[in-house]
């Protein structure tokens, strides 16, 4: 009996019970808030990209429209995506667009300012199929493209006949 309930054993039991209770007590508020933060939503094939695009541009179900737009473009030339250096939203939007643009080859161009005029002027329009602006201003000399909410614009470069 003595060996079964020695002081050491009781201390051992109290220590580990205390640690277990403390671990659970500290965690519960965090886990509860994490678990109840979002409601259950219907899931679709493009569930995640739709959420990202809605968060970045405010547009619902934009992934499907982006995919159909890219599918209508010739595959031989790359899509140039301009993103703003230091802007996490812009680079996130750019990478999501690159993800959806597959199987087109893409080129991600990170620029310092918000006007990619200089970088665009260096691009040969015959060698790209579209230009994407992620939270960047389209130069006035470029014809307007399709706008998705706020911050995403895709200008399709038509082939010269």
């Amino acid at each position: 009996m003595t060996s079964r309930w020695s002081y050491g054993r009781i201390a051992h039991l109290l220590l580990w019970c205390g640690l277990a209770v403390a671990l659970v007590t500290v965690s519960i508020p965090k886990i509860y808030s994490g678990a109840t933060e979002y409601p259950l939503r219907p899931g679709g094939a493009l569930h995640t990209t739709d959420s990202y695009l809605k968060f970045a541009t405010g547009t619902e179900g934009a992934s499907k429209n982006l995919i159909s737009m890219f599918e209508s473009m010739p595959m031989s030339k790359p899509i140039v995506i301009f993103i703003h250096k230091g802007d996490a939203f812009s680079s996130g939007l750019g990478m999501t667009t690159a993800y959806l643009a597959s199987p087109h080859p893409v080129r991600l161009c990170e620029i310092d300012g918000t006007h990619p005029d200089n970088e665009l002027s260096l691009i040969n329009p015959d060698k790209v199929v579209a230009v994407v602006f992620c939270r960047l201003t389209r130069p006035a000399w470029l014809p307007p493209g399709k706008v998705f909410g706020s911050g995403l614009e895709i200008v399709s470069i038509r082939e010269k006949r």
């Binding site: 671990l23 659970v24 965690s27 519960i28 965090k30 886990i31 808030s33 994490g34 678990a35």
Partner: peptide, 12 residues
């Protein structure tokens, strides 16, 4: 059961 109570594993 306690594995669930590591927030990094559950919700982080």
């Amino acid at each position: 059961a306690l594995l669930f109570f590591v927030p990094q594993i559950t919700v982080e």
